[in-house]
Every structure is written in C-alpha cells, then in structure tokens.
Design a protein around this nucleic acid. Structure first.
Lengths: 105, 105
DNA sequence: TAAAATAACTTACATAAAGTAACTAACTGA
DNA sequence: TCAGTTAGTTACTTTATGTAAGTTATTTTA
C-alpha cells in the first residue's frame, strides 16, 4: 500500500468519481436553477439528486437559496469553488469531442 | 426527461465517474507499468483493477503489452487517446491544490 | 527435489451505492 | 374539492465495490 498520491488530489478524484457530480456542476454552469430543472436536464433521480446537492453544499461547491415566493422557489447555484471547476469540465468536453464517436451502439 | 446533454460528453462523464478510472490514468501518466505497481500505488483491489484495465483497453485508452521474458512482464500504458486525457487530470490537480484543505479528518 | 515466492489475475461472498416507483407536504389555480 | 407543481423522502430492488482467499505459471531458495 504505497498510497503515494496526494490526499487532496485523491479527494478531488473521489468527488468527481461520484456518479452525477460532474453533470450536476456542468448543468449549474449555465446558471442558478431549481431542483426539478436539474433533474429533468440530466436525467438523475430525485433521490440521488437530493443526496448529491447536499454533499455539494457541504463541500462548499453549491449554494442553496430559498426565495419565499408563492410557490416557494429554491435555487441551486455554484460558489466560487464550484465555478473554479469549470476548466475540468471544459477539458472533458473537448476530450469527448476529439476522441469519442458521435454514434454509440 | 430532457436529456439535453451531448451524448459524447455524457459518455466521457460516465467514464471518469467510474471509481478508480481517473487515478489509474493519472498513475499511467508517469509511464508504462505493471499491474502490481498500479495496485500498490493507488490502493485499488486486484479485482477492480483488472476490470478497469479491461474497460480502458476496450475504450482504447490503455494498451496492454506482454513481454515474454522470464518472468513474463505485462505492462500497461496510455494510448494517444489516454494521453489526451492529461489536461483533465492536471486541472483536477490544480483545483484540488487551490480549493481543498491539506488536512482532512 | 520440494517449498516458498511472485505476478497477474479470478472467484465467492458481504456490504455499499444507485435505480425505480410510489408517497408526502405545502401550496395554487380551476 | 380535485388535479397540478415543487421539493423532496421512503421502501424496495438491482448493481457496483470491497475483502479475502484461490489459481496458474514460473522461479528462486533450502
């Protein structure tokens, strides 16, 4: 058990290797939005989405804001820490455009 | 179910959101190496490592080469497609240095 | 020559994570 | 009052991952 890898890098990797985390942040790059919007846009179940949003909020990556309108509006948005993740997602986007086929079986 | 996201990006995201995939590619960035070396360096179990290496080989990201020496040497290395993934991992590295704490409990 | 070691896996079993679908609570408009 | 919307939660099933031991081939050591 070497574990020669940096614990911070290791933690970042565990973060994005949680299913849906990347797509949630990517979706929030297009601006603050509601729970049901994220759910519909990326096709995640409500159960997992609420778990992930809680995790991301605890990590300081996502901010949850309640607007006491009628009906109540709850908006999720990226913090600076979350916005700083954009280059990662852009690189993944670029890589996927260059190296993955448009058609998959 | 909008599913407005690009299927190629979606596929790339499913790839890196598989546990260990990122760390395996990262580890291979330091050069071709053997199974047991990757296993020790990142702390993944042999079972999952062999699954992941097969997946990565099928995706054309990793190359497996057998050197019929004594004892036989099997080396895993990155293809061009795999090497092209480097910027993603460097960005994650940078992000983790800037935004994650050195100490975690 | 037999026993122990190493590399590269695989198998069996246990636990954790994710998916599915239905349910809740608060409100609103018809 | 009934159906609809938002933001979730709960119960249950399926899939993924972890752990530890076993396998095959070869090689080194006693």
């Amino acid at each position: 058990m070497d574990k020669s890898i940096c614990p911070r890098f290791d933690k970042a990797m565990s973060l994005i290797s949680q299913r849906w985390i990347g797509l949630i942040i990517y979706q929030l790059l297009s601006g603050p939005q509601r729970f049901c919007n994220i759910e519909a846009a990326i096709g995640v179940s409500g159960k997992v989405l609420s778990e992930r949003l809680k995790d991301l909020e605890n990590e300081g990556i996502v901010k949850r804001e309640i607007y006491p309108e009628t009906p109540v509006r709850i908006e999720y948005s990226l913090t600076d820490k979350g916005l700083a993740f954009e280059p990662v997602l852009r690189d993944i986007e670029n890589w996927s455009q260059s190296w993955l086929e448009a058609e998959s079986q």
